[in-house]
Design a protein around this nucleic acid. Structure first.
Length: 776
DNA sequence: GAAGTGATGTTTTTT
DNA sequence: ACATCACTTC
């Protein structure tokens, strides 16, 4: 691997014939169909390295990937071949690269250059607010359903206007008893625009719009990107492909586009990805002399695994013909574990892990448990903990999605873009500063009426003097932060915001385990920001080294927890099959192989074979992650939504020829029908679910404080008599001292320091309701 | 305003 | 089973 820039490119010797062609045929359109483990990433990176070696400027190359991780790996590997020049390649995810371009060009399409990126929570909250305002029936207008409908409209280049004129879409909504989807869509788009915000789909959609409407901009980027490469092409949606086409097809421009993908590994159709893109690509570029290369040798897995995967995938209807093969020897047969319950599945898988570790000397890092849904991780966690096996769960709530982290980020977002309404709503009264729900609704209504932003109108709102004072105070505070942001770096602003907003103070008051955790998360965020400002290796933009708050927010908006830095710890990986795409492990456990679960009930209920095909591709992805050992497991019964369910073993198990299964497994498999009955008839003694989880009881649940005062002797005093400074008695909290009183009449709120509470915790209690006895 | 209660939805996958 | 949300109670 030692590359010397002046010698003949030795990297070409590390490739087989087809791979080498895929690397060296740099001109014109190229489609690389790459089976699992066929060296796809190697081809992509070497192709880029080769271009650079040939004299192409790194910044003339655009490489689009699906995840940040893939982009990072690609850059690292290019760097190994060509050195630090690699960093100047435009390599990143669709979303991050497009966001970068939009930062520069946003004003041309009516957005501020410091636009906010709304994540799916923000999107959801905007849509849900619109549904509420329109007084629509929540039963028919499910926020998630509407969101995905809007998202898929955008992914297919359908604006609200086009939506309205599309009889089929409108009829579908009519049928589903939600005729106002188009209206919601219209409002949603307007709302985002007013807030200077783009959601994930907008990062693509608005870029398309930009290229469409502005010929000069289009030409600029067409000329800029002389070579374009797209990874995981099977997972692109129509919109992404449309943008790529726009960038590639310039006037008098050689169409140097290379896409790499595998139709058999397309697993994101549910969010608009379509393998049609691969088929279209071949058609679209045929006139321009497309070359197609098929990488069919699998360097990852042994033969039983590769052959089983091939057998499974032949059950799908449409696919590009290819024969994946391996010369790594037959290897171990596939093991199938059948169990009575999900808890037993957890135990048996953990047992098998222990056995494999000793017998084959595997380290934890070489082992992965893959499941269809994230909720399945728990049983495995429980047993791995019992056995003292270090593990790590990927997926679920990412760091940046935690409430406390989002709260602080919302302050920062507001500093950069005060139009950002989601950020404003989030923090205008958090920590509480007396700007209640009604006031916020008034601001929102006023903003709507005047077509201005909430930020602009909020000081003019009709409200109590107190509320208006609070609003003015809030505004002044944010403006103070903004001033800081003009001169200070991201960290300085963040520290100031965390402290002066009283966010940290509030968190410090919560002494439960979760509360301490939350405080730690905020501190971790602050540390992260500090690191960002000090670490020169983190760069948002290859051409600048911007340490401003804007730069920071842009950097994190598109991060997911998959992007956590890899560390050297040795752990067993637990993740969803989706998350495992692109990874490989010596030993892989694919668990929960049951009808309704894998394939998912969602795919089965629609009755359309498309859904089932996608599940099968997903299974194909799952089993092809394994290098040497593959274990499949299923349970006769499992808990779902709190109820015990009995499922048949997955049909996918039947699609693997029995010759690839080990002896014990083959026996169990052939009695598939029996197995279903087995669980039902003999009624296995209820697996002691409680027993297992009992050992791992959630800790830290706050216990309701018991009564501190005997109800018989307790005589509450009239609330209007309570004054600042008095010693009072409360039924549950016991003795305390009134530290402050604000509000008038019915709205009087006392801040009381109670002896019984830990540390210097204070409670705010509304006097109208509280029963307090004056002590003296 | 805060805490507790009961009803309701959620779980397929994610940039 | 768990989380969230509207609603009640203090």
């Amino acid at each position: 691997m030692s590359e010397n820039q002046n010698t003949i490119p030795t990297y070409l010797n590390q490739l087989n014939d087809i791979q080498r062609k895929a690397v060296t045929e740099t001109e014109g359109p190229v489609l690389v169909v790459a089976g699992p483990g066929s060296g796809k990433t190697r081809v992509l990176t070497f192709r880029i390295a080769h271009l650079i070696q040939k004299g192409v400027a790194p910044w003339d190359i655009l490489a689009l990937t699906f995840t940040n991780k893939a982009a990072r790996e690609m850059k690292e590997r290019i760097e190994k071949v060509v050195g630090p020049r690699a960093n100047r390649v435009w390599a990143g995810t669709f979303h991050s690269i497009f966001a970068r371009i939009l930062r520069v060009e946003a004003e041309k399409i009516g957005y501020p250059s410091n636009f906010t990126i709304y994540d799916s929570d923000d999107t959801k909250s905007v849509i849900s607010a619109i549904i509420k305002e329109m007084n629509l029936n929540k039963e028919h207008y499910n926020t998630n359903a509407i969101r995905s409908r809007i998202s898929s409209a955008k992914s297919n280049l359908i604006t609200p206007k086009l939506y309205e004129n599309d009889p089929q879409l409108m009829a579908e909504d009519q049928m589903a008893k939600r005729p106002y989807v188009q209206k919601i869509y219209t409002k949603y788009v307007a709302r985002c625009k007013r807030a200077g915000a783009m959601d994930f789909d907008d990062l693509l959609f608005r870029l398309f719009e930009l290229l469409q409407k502005h010929e000069d901009v289009r030409k600029k980027y067409q000329e800029r990107f002389k070579y374009i490469l797209v990874d995981e092409f099977q997972d692109t949606n129509h919109l992404q492909y449309s943008i790529v086409k726009k960038l590639v097809n310039g006037e008098n421009k050689p169409r140097n586009i290379c896409v790499v993908g595998d139709d058999a590994q397309s697993i994101y159709a549910f969010r608009g990805a379509t393998i049609q893109n691969i088929l279209d690509f071949e058609k679209d570029y045929k006139p321009h002399g497309i070359q197609v290369f098929k990488l069919e040798q699998n360097y990852r897995s042994t033969e039983h695994i590769v052959k089983a995967a091939n057998e499974v995938i032949t059950h799908n209807r449409n696919q590009i013909q290819k024969t994946i093969w391996s010369d790594k020897g037959s290897g171990s047969q596939i093991k199938v574990i059948k169990t009575m319950s999900d808890t037993e599945e957890g135990k048996r898988v953990a047992d098998t892990i222990v056995e494999q570790k000793t017998r084959h000397h595997l380290s934890n890092k070489e082992i992965a448990i893959l499941y269809r849904t994230n909720a399945q991780s728990r049983v495995f966690e429980e047993y791995l903990r019992r056995y003292n096996i270090h593990y790590k769960v990927f997926g679920g709530l990412s760091f940046y999605q935690r409430k406390e982290v989002k709260d602080l980020i919302a302050y920062l977002r507001l500093v950069i873009n005060p139009k950002d309404e989601e950020a404003l709503r989030r923090v205008i009264n958090f920590p509480r500063r007396g700007i209640g729900k009604t006031t916020i609704e008034k601001i929102s209504a006023l903003a709507d009426a005047k077509s201005m932003t909430m930020w602009e109108v909020m000081i003019h709102v009709q409200a109590s003097t107190k509320a208006r004072n609070s609003i003015a105070g809030f505004k002044a505070m944010i403006e103070l932060f903004q001033k800081k942001a003009e001169t200070g770096n991201a960290y300085e602003v963040a520290i100031m915001a965390a402290k002066q907003s009283k966010l940290v103070d509030l968190l410090k008051q919560d002494t439960t385990i979760e509360g301490i955790n939350r405080l730690e998360n905020v501190n971790a965020l602050l540390d992260g920001i500090k690191e960002f400002t000090e670490d020169n290796t983190i760069q948002v933009d290859e051409n600048s080294n911007d340490k401003s708050l804007t730069a920071y927010l842009q950097n994190i908006a598109l991060l997911t927890d998959q992007d956590e830095k890899s560390n050297s710890e040795d752990y067993v990986t637990l993740m969803s099959v989706h998350a495992a795409k692109g990874l490989e492990f010596k030993s892989v456990f694919v668990v929960g192989m049951e009808e309704q679960l894998f394939p998912s009930f969602m795919a089965l209920k629609s009755d359309s074979p498309d859904g089932l095909d996608e599940e099968r591709r997903l299974f194909y992805v799952a089993i092809t992650r394994a290098e040497a050992f593959l274990t499949l497991s299923y349970a006769a019964s499992r808990y779902k939504f709190g109820k015990q369910q009995y499922n048949e073993p997955s049909r996918f198990l039947d699609e693997i020829d029995i010759s690839h299964l080990d002896n014990n497994s083959a026996y169990g498999r052939s009695s598939r029908a029996q197995m279903g009955n087995y669980g039902r008839e003999s009624k296995p003694a209820a697996p002691s679910r409680a027993g297992v989880s009992g050992n791992f009881k959630r800790t830290g649940t706050a216990v309701t404080p018991s009564l501190k005062v005997d109800p018989k002797t307790f005589k509450p005093s009239p609330s209007q008599n309570i004054q600042n400074g008095m010693r009072v008695l409360h039924m549950r909290f016991g003795e305390g001292k009134v530290m402050a009183i604000d509000g008038i009449n019915d709205k009087r709120v006392a801040t009381i320091f109670f002896k019984s509470l830990p540390d210097d915790q204070q409670k705010r209690i509304m006097l109208k309701f509280a029963k307090l006895q004056i002590l003296n």
